[in-house]
Amino acid sequence: MRGRRKFGVLVGVLAVVFAVLTSINIGQARSVRPAERGPIAAHSAASGSGAPASASRSSGTPGGGGVLIVYFSRSGSHYGGRNFKVGNTAHVAQFIHQRVGGDLYQIVPAVPYPEDYDQTVEQARKEQEDGVHPKIAGEQPDTDRYSTIFLGYPIWWGEQPMIVQTFMQDHNLNGKTVIPFTTDEGSGWGNSLDVLKQYYPQARILDGFEKRGNDVADDLDGTQRQVNDWLEGLGY
């Protein structure tokens, strides 16, 4: 009889805990709204000819035609308590530019992300959960002028930051050669390659370059050599 009462208490406690956890789970599942993906513009949504002028020395690229290196990179406080004047993805973009030439364009948000790393992470999470596409500052390049786009980004919450997805939404790169590069802190490419394919199912997406952000900062020369080796493998 005593054992039966104890058993009843145990089952009751477990049932209550399960009910509480399930209600929390339902609340969390409902709070998430999947983002819609794909370029809105039928063509490249250039809002001007604002591609920054830069030295061009490319010749005979795999994609043919002009090369544009687009990247988003965040400087300031970073993962692991570090502080960078130049973001890790920006370093890689520079290395690509030095080797390939073409035009270089940095995605800059109209409203800067917070200086504080944790606040940025939280904002990025909300943007992704709510499917928010933050505005990009200044004029964007006319991607129609290029046949090959290098697209660089850090991995935030397993994929491209939403500010990069704003660019991807604004520019239809289907039919072009798209070459991704990324810096992360252990997640590798995350889901970003799948996201890229969702935006541009008809693009020719080549093998990209991926490295841990802190490893880039710790060994710039080594990173540049790796970038050059990767580009050489692509035919640059």
Binding site: L14, V17, F18, L21, T22, I24, N25, I26, Q28, A29, S31, V32, R125, E129, W157, G158
Partner: peptide, 21 residues
């Protein structure tokens, strides 16, 4: 339970809690 990429998947979370409990 704190990881957003995981806790958004209700069926998994229910199964996870059931096995744990």
């Amino acid at each position: 339970h704190l990881i957003v990429q995981i806790n958004r998947h209700l069926v998994f979370m229910i199964a996870f809690d059931l096995v744990t409990l």
